[in-house]
Computed example of a mutant assay.
Amino acid sequence: MRPILAVLLLAVALVVPVQRASAEKVGAAFNHPGVLVSRAQLDHVKANLGAEPWKPAWAALRASSFASLSYTPKPRANVECGPSSNPNNGCSDERNDAMAAYTHALQWYLTGDDRHAKKAVQIMDAWSAVITEHTGHNARLQTGWAGASFSRAAELIKHTYTGWANAGRFAGKLRTVYLPIVIAGSPNTNGNWELIMTDAAIGIAVHLDDRAAFDRAVTTWRGRLAAYVYLTTDGSLPKQAPGSRYDTRDELIGYWYGQSTFVNGLAQETCRDFGHTGWGIAAAVHVAETARHQGLDLYAEGKDRLRHAMGFHAGLQLGEPVPSWLCGGSVKPGLGPTFEVGFNALRNRMGIGMARTQRLVEQGRPAGVSHFLGWETLTHANNPA
């Protein structure tokens, strides 16, 4: 009996800690507000609104049409978005309304004027009352764009303002209309799609306190970032995105727009244009920033890809000669306001030298808005929090 009892006790000793660790992981509380921005970050901004570089960034936000107290939302039940948002049946309206909600949420926190909180609530309530679906070719990307901004707005209002009676209804729409689309990923489209969708997915997961969705978004990020930005340690070819049908040499080169020479920092869409590439890099950084607020350091995992990607494209955007082996000797610049969050994380927090990225970021200040990018000089420039 004693040997059997010993075996049983050993089995219990081995099983119980595993069960406890699993329960602690699933039940671990999320930090709120914690989607792209944290309370500590915004408190730092609030204390420095009269100083550089926040002062002009704050002035730009306040002067924007998104910041107006007379802003009127334009919700609809079905947002139909074709290729390049053509047809555009509610696509621009939804993106603009999501950005306006986030803009007013920021104003509420930074000023304490509850009229801005009420305006953000009005916008989100208008959409949660009617939205049921996204359709058309660009439906997944549109859901990512809008879901990213809406989740930031909802998170900030819910956790800093007490007057949102319909917060649960909006959360329900995030769960049923947005999350199922963005969490599913998009392995066979250009990488910026899946990264933007993952940006929305992790933001929604945090807002909903959904640990399973959070973990799934992180898994998608790990696979897609490695397949979006090349490092020489990857081997002679870029990594295949998990679930992607592009797996042979010819297919991968075609997927990378005919590029067959690979160097540190090259991205899957570099030879397409820098606009979409910048979106992909920015979305990858957003995921890492939100994860950081939740105690998960994805920057430690992705810093080499992110720093090389930003530096490589920043140099070319600044006018460095395009090598003949790159994209047939010609690229399409136009990065937009994409690197502020990543630069702050890697250069200011982690101390990584990023001279070209710094020049580009400082030239582009204050960063404004673009689809799912909003006011990032204000929220993240020189921000140690």
Rank of each mutant, 00 (worst) to 15 (best):
57 A>R: 01
67 A>G: 08
51 A>I: 11
32 H>T: 05
43 D>N: 13
64 S>Q: 10
33 P>M: 04
72 T>G: 11
26 V>T: 11
48 N>A: 13
64 S>G: 10
52 E>V: 12
73 P>A: 08
74 K>F: 10
19 Q>T: 06
21 A>Q: 13
45 V>L: 04
54 W>P: 03
19 Q>F: 14
31 N>I: 09
35 V>T: 02
45 V>A: 01
25 K>L: 13
27 G>V: 06
20 R>W: 14
72 T>Y: 07
62 R>S: 15
63 A>F: 11
24 E>C: 05
22 S>T: 12
66 F>I: 04
33 P>K: 02
47 A>D: 14
53 P>D: 03
43 D>A: 07
31 N>A: 12
52 E>F: 15
22 S>I: 09
47 A>G: 08
9 L>C: 09
13 A>D: 00
34 G>W: 00
56 P>K: 10
36 L>M: 10
56 P>D: 10
46 K>R: 15
26 V>K: 14
61 L>D: 00
55 K>S: 12
70 S>C: 05
43 D>R: 03
30 F>E: 01
67 A>T: 04
47 A>N: 07
65 S>N: 15
20 R>H: 06
26 V>W: 08
15 V>Y: 09
59 A>Y: 09
14 L>C: 08
10 L>P: 00
68 S>K: 14
35 V>G: 00
70 S>K: 15
64 S>K: 04
11 A>S: 12
43 D>L: 02
8 L>A: 15
73 P>I: 04
9 L>A: 14
66 F>A: 11
12 V>W: 03
71 Y>K: 06
72 T>Q: 15
25 K>M: 12
